[in-house]
Every structure is written in structure tokens, then in C-alpha cells.
Amino acid sequence: MQIDSILSSGLGAFQAGQQRIDQAAGAVAGASLPAADTSQAVAETVELTEQLVQMKVGEHQAKAGVRLLQTADEVLGTLINTKA
């Protein structure tokens, strides 16, 4: 595997995680609080919970992308030091 493909993969994972967080945060910000204990209130609560879960998934996805970028950077640094 080449370093540039690792960097691209890491950047793609980070951007996808950030996009997931942005979408979920927008949905949470646009949601209204449930008014009473009705089936609609339960559905709205479930939707909010799902969006919070999506935000956490996006966070983990972005962190994985960052770790991939850091690893590629370290490998590239090692290769440069070995070559020099």
C-alpha cells in the first residue's frame, strides 16, 4: 500500500466522520422537545437518541481517520529518515 493512498483513506474517513457529526447535530438542533407522553413524543425521543448515537459514531470515525493520518505521517517520517 502506498503512503498517498493511506493519507487519502485517513482524510476520507475524517471527512466522513465530520459530515456525519454535522448532519446529526443539525437534526438535533432542529428538533423540538416532546410536549407530553404520547406516541409522537416517544418517536421524537427515539429520533433524538438515534441522532446522538450518530454523532458518537461520527466522532469515532473521525478519530480513526486522524489515527490513520498520524500513522501515515510517522511511516513517511521513518522512510525519509531511513533514506537520508
Rank of each mutant, 00 (worst) to 15 (best):
I3D: 05
I3Q: 09
I3A: 12
S5H: 06
I6F: 15
I6G: 12
L7G: 04
S8L: 07
S9C: 14
G10E: 05
A13Q: 11
Q15P: 02
G17W: 06
G17H: 02
G17C: 04
G17M: 03
G17R: 09
G17E: 00
Q19E: 06
R20I: 09
I21P: 05
D22L: 03
D22W: 02
Q23S: 13
Q23M: 11
Q23P: 00
A24M: 10
G26S: 07
V28A: 04
V28Y: 04
A29K: 01
G30P: 03
G30Y: 00
A31E: 00
D37P: 02
T38F: 05
A41E: 00
A41S: 11
V42W: 06
V42T: 10
A43V: 15
E44Y: 06
V46E: 11
V46W: 04
L48G: 14
T49W: 03
T49V: 15
E50A: 15
Q54S: 12
M55H: 01
K56Y: 01
V57A: 09
G58F: 12
G58K: 04
G58L: 02
E59V: 01
H60T: 14
K63A: 09
A64L: 15
G65R: 05
G65N: 09
V66M: 04
R67H: 14
L69N: 11
L69G: 10
L69C: 09
A72K: 11
A72V: 12
A72M: 13
D73E: 13
D73T: 14
V75K: 12
G77R: 14
T78V: 14
L79R: 07
L79V: 06
N81A: 08
T82Y: 15
K83Y: 05
K83M: 07
A84G: 07
